[in-house]
Design a protein around this nucleic acid. Structure first.
Lengths: 227, 227
DNA sequence: AAATTTCTTGACAGTTTCTTAACAATGTAG
DNA sequence: CTACATTGTTAAGAAACTGTCAAGAAATTT
């Protein structure tokens, strides 16, 4: 029930402190020791909030934020030992949602995390998203909570990636999702333009769920969408 | 066009500094010298953002935030000279969206204001998501979000370029778009003056959507427009 | 460690879309 | 009305894209 928070911090002591603090407050915590592993972990772990020490003066942290913002709105709280004004401005303009100077007090970080969650909740409420943990139409059912899929009553077993793709399509039912968007959501942002693997996954999905109907439609040159 | 920001600060020098800073950045600023006048001014001035120095250790500022939160989600940025951890936590839990310690640097405040605006915009966008991006007239419907087109209820399949042209026309409904403009928008800026391909695409579009009506009109010698 | 499942890649065939060109139809000016 | 320019239509080859299969790599389970 509690939110999942990802902590990316190269300094071991600081990372452990943050992790312990958050866990103490009941959050689920995922940690990463460096930017590249953290970046790819975002896709698989799907955290609700990211806490990041961008480690100035190197620009890696800022670049990470910029890259992430290309495809995700996940809130980012930036920490920084080197708490200059420039750092704060640069990070927030890159897309960070908040900025805290190290050394910080635990309670303040927690308060800012609560703040973030409040914002997320507001946005979700505005979207009207919080009502439906289920997609169901034309005999195809996707239960996002149970992670189960049925077609015409039959239970269908899907692999991790197949399920990610299908649930993504169903959550945006009717909309066309571009190849690029799907690729970045499923395989992470550092994918090249090669859609081969996506094509294979779509083929497998169709083989598994389409006995007679066509659930997944192709928009040539653009992407896929669900009917 | 620029946002209206309300500054509530009992210290004259600090208030003037903040006001000047915000005005310099192009915002409209309303100021208040005390809490009660500030509170009542919120209703009349209707600012998009409130910047507040709650003046610890008195609780008036916290009370103001709590009272405001009963009926408004207007973002509040709290400043504080007395920047203890407790103060920050108390203010944010009362409903403040951000907290900055005095003395602060101007640029950081501005960055945080920009952040606030980004959040507001996100929420507004989420609210108006399902209704907004749609062209619909005389039986022709273009859903820019879902990238779908219907004519007289029927779903119409369009190719990439056909869709680009149609949505371009619909987004500029009524206006005449010149051949040159359409060509450059769809095929990029370095196109020669050969409109052959555009003519073919328009013909295909008409074949697909015009059973009886004429949606796409030709302005001889100029370009096309949608009725 | 072996077996099973899942992921990834590359090749290739089939399909869709793009582009060109020729010609027909329409509009315009003298 | 004729001649010319502009626009619409059609068809066919070229190019790009998508679906499918199979084989090996990687991950997971037994």
């Amino acid at each position: 029930m509690k939110e999942k928070i990802m902590v990316i911090d190269l300094d071991r002591r600081s990372r452990l402190f943050t992790e312990k603090l958050l866990k103490g407050a009941g959050y689920e915590v995922v940690t990463a020791k460096d930017f590249s592993s953290g970046y790819s972990l975002i896709t698989t772990a799907q955290p609700q909030i990211i806490i990041l020490d961008p480690l100035f003066p190197k620009k890696e942290g800022v670049n990470l934020i910029r890259a992430l913002r290309e495809w995700s709105d996940c809130p980012i709280i930036a920490l920084s030992l080197n708490g200059t004004e420039r750092a704060a401005v640069e990070l927030m303009d890159a897309g960070a949602d908040d900025f805290i100077r190290k050394p910080f007090f635990g309670e303040e970080l927690l308060a800012r995390v609560r703040n973030c969650i409040k914002h997320i909740t507001l946005i979700e409420a505005a979207k009207g998203m919080d009502t439906e943990p289920l997609y169901s139409k034309d005999g195809l059912t996707v239960d996002y909570n149970g992670r189960t899929v049925t077609a015409d009553g039959e239970n269908i077993h899907l692999t991790k990636n197949e399920y990610k793709i299908l649930s993504l399509l169903c959550r945006n039912s009717g909309k066309v999702l571009t190849y690029d968007f799907i690729m970045k959501s499923v395989w992470g942002p550092q994918t090249d333009g090669n859609t081969g693997i996506l094509r294979v996954n779509i083929a497998n999905l169709r083989k598994k769920l389409e006995k007679n109907r066509n659930y997944i439609l192709t928009e040539n040159g653009i992407g896929y969408r669900i009917k």
